[in-house]
C-alpha cells in the first residue's frame, strides 16, 4: 500500500547543524498491516512517520501510495491525500485551545463538511466510543491528558482514514490509560485499518494486534526486526 524507496531526510541541509534523520530507508507497509516502529529518541521514528504520512517531503528517494509517486505532487494534492487517506495521532494531542471538543474533532472536515453528511453524528459516536460523550461541549484545555489523547484519536478517525499514523500515543498516559488506548487501537486493527505506530512503550510493541515490529537507530531500520 505504502512504499518508501531509499528515502533520506536531512534537516538544516548545508548548515552547521545539518542532521540526517533518515538514511536511505526502504519500507513497505501493506494494507491492513499493524506496524510498530521502536527505537530510542532521535532514531528517526517521528521523521519516518512524517514522510510516510506526507507531512514532510523526503530530501531524496520516493514515497509511493498504491503505486503512485507522492514525492513530486503539488501541496494541494498532498493535502487531499492527507485528508482522505491518513489519520494522525500525535504524541501531543494538539487540540486547539478554546475550541469545544466536538469542534476539535470536526476540524479536519470543517472546510468540506456538509450539513446532513453524518459527520457530526460520526464525531459524536467516536467521542462516545472513547468515553467522552459528556465532554463534547467542554473546552479542549479542560480535558485530562488521557481524555485529550482520546479526543485526538476521535479527530484522527473522523474521516475514516485507511491508515492511522500514531506517534508515541501513550507517552503522556499512565499504564491504565495506556492499556485503554491500546485496546482502542486493537479495535481499529480488528476493523482492518492499517496502523503505523512509533513508540518506546513495550506495552504498544507487545500489543496483540501488532503484526510487525521494526527497530530503528540513527535513521535506519535495523536488520533482524521481527514480524509476527
Amino acid at each position: 500500500m505504502i512504499a518508501l524507496e531509499q528515502v533520506t531526510k536531512v534537516y538544516s541541509r548545508g548548515r552547521p547543524e545539518e542532521h540526517t534523520a533518515l538514511a536511505a530507508v526502504d519500507l513497505t507497509v501493506g494494507a491492513g498491516e499493524r506496524l510498530v516502529l521502536m527505537g530510542p529518541s532521535g532514531s528517526g521514528k517521528t521523521t519516518l512517520l512524517s514522510v510516510l504520512g506526507t507531512l514532510s517531503r523526503p530530501t531524496s528517494g520516493r514515497v509511493r501510495l498504491e503505486g503512485r509517486d507522492l514525492t513530486r505532487l503539488p501541496e494541494k494534492a498532498l493535502a487531499s491525500i492527507r485528508r482522505r487517506t491518513f489519520g494522525f495521532l500525535f504524541q501531543e494531542p494538539h487540540l486547539v485551545r478554546g475550541l469545544r471538543v466536538i469542534d476539535n474533532v470536526l476540524l479536519p472536515a470543517l472546510p468540506v463538511h456538509e450539513p446532513g453528511d453524518g459527520l457530526r453524528e460520526r464525531a459524536l459516536s467516536l467521542l462516545g466510543k472513547f468515553g467522552l460523550e459528556r465532554k463534547t461541549l467542554a473546552r479542549a484545555e479542560t480535558l485530562s491528558p488521557g481524555e485529550a489523547q482520546r479526543a485526538g484519536l476521535a479527530r484522527a478517525l473522523l474521516l475514516d482514514p485507511q491508515v492511522l499514523i500514531a506517534d508515541e500515543p501513550t507517552a503522556h498516559l499512565d499504564t491504565a490509560r495506556s492499556r485503554e488506548l491500546i485496546a482502542f487501537l486493537g479495535s481499529l486493527a480488528a476493523e482492518g485499518k492499517t496502523l503505523v505506530i512509533a513508540s518506546h512503550d513495550p506495552l504498544v510493541g507487545g500489543a496483540g494486534f501488532v503484526n510487525r515490529v521494526l527497530a530503528m537507530r540513527d535513521g535506519r531500520i535495523l536488520e533482524g526486526s521481527s514480524s509476527r
Binding site: R82, V96, L107, P108, P111
Partner: peptide, 15 residues
C-alpha cells in the same frame, strides 16, 4: 502549531 495541525489534518493552503 495550529497552522501545522490544520495542514496535518488535510487542510489545503488556500483553506
Amino acid at each position: 502549531r495550529e497552522i501545522g495541525l490544520l495542514k496535518a489534518v488535510g487542510w489545503e493552503l488556500s483553506e
